[in-house]
Design a protein around this nucleic acid. Sequence first.
DNA 1: GGCGAATGTGAACGGCGTGTAAAAAATCTT
DNA 2: AAGATTTTTTACACGCCGTTCACATTCGCC
Lengths: 225, 225
Amino acid sequence: MADDLLLCLPATIDPSLLLGLSQAGYRLEQIDVEHLDAAPKQLLAALVSARGGLSVGLDTCRKLRATAEGTVPILLLVNQVDVSSLEHTGEAFDDFAILPTSSAELIVRLSKLTIGRGAAGKSVLVTYGPLKINTETYQAAIDGRVLDLTYMEYELLSFLASNPTKVFTREALLSRVWGYEYYGGARTVDVHIRRLRAKLGEEHASLIETIRSVGYRLGQPSWAT
Amino acid sequence: MADDLLLCLPATIDPSLLLGLSQAGYRLEQIDVEHLDAAPKQLLAALVSARGGLSVGLDTCRKLRATAEGTVPILLLVNQVDVSSLEHTGEAFDDFAILPTSSAELIVRLSKLTIGRGAAGKSVLVTYGPLKINTETYQAAIDGRVLDLTYMEYELLSFLASNPTKVFTREALLSRVWGYEYYGGARTVDVHIRRLRAKLGEEHASLIETIRSVGYRLGQPSWAT
DNA sequence: GGCGAATGTGAACGGCGTGTAAAAAATCTT
DNA sequence: AAGATTTTTTACACGCCGTTCACATTCGCC
């Protein structure tokens, strides 16, 4: 599986770790906390290094939690010396690994964090604008109003919201939402999109855009607004 | 804080680790998985060593999950060599530490695992709305009316109430309520759900919701914005 | 503006998941 | 060992919802 992984760390990290992660299919992006708001929305998890001192690392964690991406799982990298200081840091971070660590350990911890019920399993919340999706409770809401969706409607909306502003062809949606072995007409997608728009309400029906002769897309890229 | 900590491990573990834990206020008790049912109910977390081989350790985890204490947090101790094999082990354990580890690391991981739980470990009283469950007396009540539940009915309701608003597939319920080594039809869950709804009374039958083609869920999530 | 292709729309069919009940099997009780 | 209780299996009916089709509408292109 290829997932996005945001990195919030100084350049002092061992490059072999990054190599191992990218080989495992993680797409890495190094970014500063300050410019996080401009980050890609497909953010899966954040790596924070406390090598520059534990207090600095924890500070970064809190800043992360304060942003719009506050629900993103945070994996903290700490030195052995600082471990005992972690005890009463509350929920500033979700999990931690002790340096020097291995990419194997990071991969396992990351997969646990993003599965939902992991070491400190958080409910996985997908949000895009007024749209909120809770993958644990299988509920979606817009403007706080809970949407009464069927299974396929939920799956489709959930997938689109997980990859916002990205255009998918009907065939791509059929294979990724319905399943690879699906043999059905592509027009099925249209009907589901239609029902989704109806349930989103007139106000937010335009959240799902039609890209003529290409496919569908949820949300608009930030520069187009 | 002084908490109970159950140990499920061979005698090969480093004694200094145990010393550090007990100095931190954890009350330790070494116990075999087979005799777990006779364990004190204030069980907070379980340490499982995979030093005797990863498959053995994972087996112990699954046995733990199969017992009545199936929801207890499990911290697995593994060798560095086995880390990469942990990736697709699902929910067999909650967190892990790589040997040789330190008591400081264990303390932090344990406190993270048990956060939110009562000081005495698994909270004795589980409540959700009008539903009250006393895990000490094995009694459940709704609106003050005591429910006359069978063993499985109680276990199922108790598990659902311990994870309210979360959706579980029938397979997940079979694994976590019935036990990992259960080989039975998934429709069994339906029947128990039906009996539970009947005993909850017409008024509260809707407390357990059916998520079509997914599974069941107790209660509706509150969309805290 | 006209034509064709792509998409929106509504309705209808049919499969499949679930509710329900009862039988069968397993477990506990006496 | 026999009966009672609990659990599991099996069977069937119903209703939702995913799919498909026919038709209407819109869009792009010349």
